[in-house]
Simulated assay, not measured.
Amino acid sequence: MERANDLVMPDDPGGEEFSSLTNPFRVELLAHCYRMLGSVHDAEDLVQETYLRAWRSYDGFEGRSSLRTWLYRIATRVCLTALENRGRRPLPTGLGGPTTDLDDAATMPDVPWLEPIPDALVGAEGSDPAAIVTSRESIRLAFVAALQHLPPRQRAVLLLRDVLKWRTAEVAEMLHTTTTAVDSTLRRARSHLERVSPRQDALAEPTSAAQRELLDRYVTAFEGRDVVALTELFTDEVSWEMPPFAAWFQGSETVSRHLATQCAAQPGDLRLVRTYANGQPAFATYLRSEDGIHHLTSLQVLTLTTAGIAHVTNFVDPRLFALFSLPDIGRLAHHGGSSA
């Protein structure tokens, strides 16, 4: 697949104009495709496909809608086509109830798991505070996971209406349907989402200062293998999941027992390097091997509330690490928790 940035040809005088006009929308289109697919790798491919199709048909663009709207039409249709033959991308918490069997280490490597996305790729680290809030709320891991429960067209309608704020008539035109059908689809999507998505008031975040203190304490406790200190940072109903392991744990006591009995690292063996994913704090986790080198083993994405750490998702797919510009291996002599 050609990358959109490579589509400008020397003998194509309109190519430079196309790139200059359409490239500003690349980041938000990537976020849109990611919400639809639940995979940053698939989203990147579909954004490339979107730009390729747009470039090929640019001469026929008549300006009856904005260029942004036109690109979103193409991207949404590309996503819906891609989803015709694909199942949803779940997290372990979306497949069944928690387990109390601490020895349950069954993996499901063939499941297309939901992937995290770096904030930097989708503009969640921008300078406009209002834009940051909007962007972060719409790419939260729990929200994207909840979207995966919706049929593709419901997913598209909800995103276009509630996230992008398109008018009903615009959505109807894009999907070749009626405004009545769009309204009906939106009601069903909202109702379904309410049943599977956490309440927003339950996800109220601590202040910036309290968040920094909480994360600093988490790093100190995790690197020091201080399970008692970690337990104090968790909410009572904290969830801990580790795709591709199907088992997940809930409750501070169960999670703490898992960390105490199933994680063999000693104090100093683990180092955390701070990053950000899905508008949430995240940590790259490095484990020291016998050669004294800390190897990157997982990416933790944390959900924080005013009551403490409510959810930790540990991703162990090595393909994801490169997305976050993290070193694969390294000697991390200093205290972890530094910004990546």
Results as ranks from 00 to 15, higher is better:
105 A>F: 04
254 T>H: 06
310 A>I: 01
136 R>L: 01
25 F>G: 09
64 R>H: 12
233 L>G: 11
230 L>S: 03
207 T>N: 06
60 G>V: 07
108 M>F: 02
180 T>P: 00
165 K>S: 14
85 N>D: 11
236 D>E: 15
253 E>Y: 05
158 L>V: 06
49 E>M: 11
156 A>S: 07
251 G>F: 03
193 L>F: 07
101 D>P: 00
262 Q>A: 00
32 H>V: 03
16 E>T: 13
111 V>Q: 13
296 L>G: 04
54 A>N: 09
161 R>F: 02
196 V>D: 03
60 G>D: 12
265 A>W: 11
102 L>S: 01
272 L>S: 08
297 T>E: 15
131 A>G: 06
95 L>T: 11
323 L>T: 00
9 M>Y: 10
338 S>V: 10
340 A>L: 14
206 P>D: 03
166 W>K: 07
188 R>M: 12
80 L>P: 05
43 A>C: 13
127 S>M: 04
110 D>E: 15
205 E>H: 10
1 M>P: 15
54 A>L: 10
33 C>D: 14
182 V>S: 02
263 C>F: 14
225 R>T: 11
81 T>C: 02
102 L>T: 03
306 T>F: 07
106 A>G: 08
168 T>S: 10
96 G>N: 08
206 P>S: 01
144 V>W: 09
317 D>I: 01
159 L>W: 02
76 T>K: 02
319 R>H: 11
247 A>E: 01
16 E>S: 08
141 L>H: 05
286 Y>F: 14
181 A>Q: 06
27 V>K: 14
152 P>D: 04
111 V>H: 08
200 Q>K: 14
252 S>H: 15
151 P>Y: 02
225 R>V: 13
121 L>D: 15
189 A>M: 01
190 R>W: 08
202 A>D: 15
38 G>D: 02
281 P>T: 08
106 A>I: 05
231 T>K: 15
248 W>A: 03
184 S>R: 14
161 R>T: 02
329 I>L: 01
130 A>M: 12
72 Y>V: 11
164 L>A: 06
258 H>C: 07
18 F>W: 07
38 G>L: 05
336 G>F: 02
83 L>I: 08
80 L>Q: 05
206 P>C: 00
11 D>P: 03
265 A>R: 00
313 T>C: 13
157 V>T: 07
234 F>G: 08
